[in-house]
């Protein structure tokens, strides 16, 4: 274990840090009861997990003299897009009427949405 440079230590630390989130994200994907909860887990792995590994790679590359702008760009990109992706999927699930599991709290927005749809149907009928 001698002669481990600081950068190697940091890189492996961050890899493990990122790894933890990636793993938990996937496990979460399996364990959680319904779509909506399931969507939370992988987004975390996307952001924090990959983030950790990216930081590790930046440090690692820096120690080898490469300054990776692309890593930073990827992190920024991931940070931006992962939540939006999850949001879109959740929205899709919601609108296609996927039932949330019993444990999750009742959701008022559901009823408002139902109402809106019923009025729309009535409007169509008497058009």
């Amino acid at each position: 274990m001698t002669g481990i440079s600081l950068s190697e230590l940091l890189t492996s630390f961050f890899i493990l840090f990122g790894l933890f989130f990636v793993l938990t994200g996937s496990i979460g994907l399996i364990r959680f009861p319904d779509v909506y909860t399931r969507l939370h887990a992988p987004t975390k792995s996307a952001t924090l997990g990959v983030f950790g590994i990216l930081i590790a790679s930046i440090i690692h590359q820096a120690s080898h003299g490469f300054l990776g702008i692309k890593e930073i760009l990827t992190t920024v990109f991931l940070f931006l897009t992962a939540p939006v992706g999850a949001h879109m999927i959740a929205r899709a699930a919601y609108l296609t009427g996927v039932q949330p599991a019993q444990q999750s709290t009742t959701c008022e927005f559901f009823y408002i949405l139902r109402q809106k749809e019923e009025d729309k149907q009535d409007a169509d009928q008497n058009l």
Partner: peptide, 21 residues
């Protein structure tokens, strides 16, 4: 079914990808 979140984010992301390409 416009989704405002998607719109705003894509406006930003758009340029990132364009420059990248």
């Amino acid at each position: 079914m416009k989704s405002f979140i998607l719109e705003t984010v894509s406006k930003v992301v758009l340029f990132v990808i364009l420059i990248f390409s």
